[in-house]
C-alpha cells in the first residue's frame, strides 16, 4: 500500500501541468520538425529510392554495390581502418584521459586545454597537418633524411589516413574518459586495494569495467566519424580507396547517381548500425556528441 501512496505522490509532483502544457510543447517542436522533415527525411527517402533504381540494365544501385568486389573492398577497407583507428584512439586517449582526470600537477589544465582544442578542427585541416608531419616536405621526411638518408613519406597512404583519423579522435576520447572518470566511484578502487589487489588488477577489475560504457559509446562515435570522414581523405589524395572518396568519385567523375546513392545508403546504414549496437550495449548512458 505504501508504495502506491508514494507513487501517487510522485505522480502528483510532475502531474498535470505537464499534461496541460503539452500542446504548447508540441508547437515548440514544429519548426525543428519541419526543417528535419523537408531537408533531411525527404532527401534521405529520395536517396534510398534512388539507390534502388535500375540503370543501363546493370541492376539496381544496391546490387551493383553489393556485387562489385571493388566497392565491397572499399567498404571493408573503410570499416577495418575505422575499427583500427577507434581501438588506437581508445588506447591512447584512455591512458591520457585517466591520467589527466586522476592526477593533479602544475600545468594540468593547460595540457587538457591544448589536448582538446583540435576537437573542432575540420577534416581538411587535419589532412594538411598530416601532410606537414609525414608529407614530402614533412617532419618525418626531414628526420628520415637526417637519420637514414631517405625521406620517410607516408602521408598519402592509408597510414597517413590512420594518423589523421587518430588526430581528430583522440581529443574526443580524452574528454569523454575524463568526464567518465570523474563520475567513477573512487571507493571501489580503494576497496579493491584494501583487498590486496595490485595496481594492474585494479585497472583490469575496477577501472576498465567502470569506464566501459563511456569507452563503448565514445568508440562508436569515433568509428562513425572515421567512416564518414571525407575531408582528410580528400586532402591526402583522391586515389585512397575509402568509401567516402569512392562515393565522391562515382558522383563527380562518372555522374553515376544511382551507385553514389546506393553507396551512401550502405555506408550510412553501416555507421548507424554500429551506433545502434553501441547504444544497445550501454543502455543507460547517453552518447556524448
Amino acid at each position: 500500500m505504501s508504495s502506491t501512496v508514494l507513487k501517487a505522490h510522485n505522480v502528483a509532483a510532475g502531474g498535470l501541468l505537464k499534461r496541460r502544457l503539452r500542446p504548447t510543447a508540441a508547437w515548440a517542436l514544429a519548426p525543428a520538425a519541419a526543417v528535419l522533415a523537408a531537408f533531411w527525411l525527404l532527401p534521405l527517402a529520395h536517396l534510398i529510392v534512388l539507390g534502388g533504381q535500375q540503370r543501363d540494365g546493370a541492376g539496381s544501385g544496391y546490387w551493383q554495390v553489393l556485387s562489385s568486389p571493388q566497392y565491397l573492398g572499399s567498404l571493408a577497407q573503410t570499416c577495418v581502418l575505422a575499427a583500427v583507428v577507434t581501438l588506437a584512439a581508445l588506447l591512447v586517449g584512455g591512458i591520457t584521459g585517466v591520467f589527466l582526470a586522476r592526477q593533479r600537477f602544475f600545468g594540468r589544465t593547460t595540457l587538457v586545454a591544448l589536448l582538446t582544442f583540435p576537437l573542432a578542427f575540420p577534416g581538411v585541416v587535419v589532412g594538411f597537418l598530416v601532410i606537414l608531419l609525414a608529407g614530402r616536405q614533412g617532419l618525418f621526411a626531414m628526420l628520415g633524411l637526417k637519420l637514414a638518408g631517405e625521406r620517410w613519406v607516408f602521408a598519402y597512404s592509408l597510414a597517413g589516413l590512420f594518423l589523421g583519423y587518430l588526430y581528430f579522435s583522440i581529443p574526443r576520447v580524452i574528454l569523454t574518459i575524463m568526464a567518465a572518470c570523474e563520475s567513477l566511484d573512487r571507493s571501489l578502487e580503494e576497496a579493491a586495494h584494501s583487498l590486496g589487489a595490485g595496481h594492474w588488477r585494479v585497472v583490469c577489475d575496477v577501472i576498465i569495467p567502470g569506464l566501459a560504457p563511456a569507452l563503448v559509446s565514445c568508440g562508436a562515435i569515433c568509428f562513425a566519424t572515421s567512416m564518414g570522414a571525407f575531408g582528410t581523405a580528400f586532402t591526402l589524395g583522391t586515389q585512397l580507396n575509402v568509401t567516402p572518396v569512392a562515393i565522391y568519385n562515382v558522383f563527380t567523375n562518372y555522374a553515376n547517381f544511382t551507385v553514389a546513392a546506393a553507396l551512401s545508403v550502405v555506408l550510412g546504414a553501416l555507421t548507424w548500425a554500429v551506433l545502434l549496437l553501441a547504444r544497445r550495449m550501454v543502455k543507460q548512458s547517453r552518447t556524448v556528441l
Binding site: 505504501s2 501512496v5 508514494l6 501517487a8 505522490h9 502528483a12 509532483a13 502531474g15 498535470l16 501541468l17 496541460r20
Partner: peptide, 18 residues
Amino acid sequence: PSGCGKTTTLRMIAGLER
C-alpha cells in the same frame, strides 16, 4: 503524511491540476 493527497488538493486549488 506524504502521499495523503494534500499536495494534490493544493494544486487543484491553484489550478496546477484539474
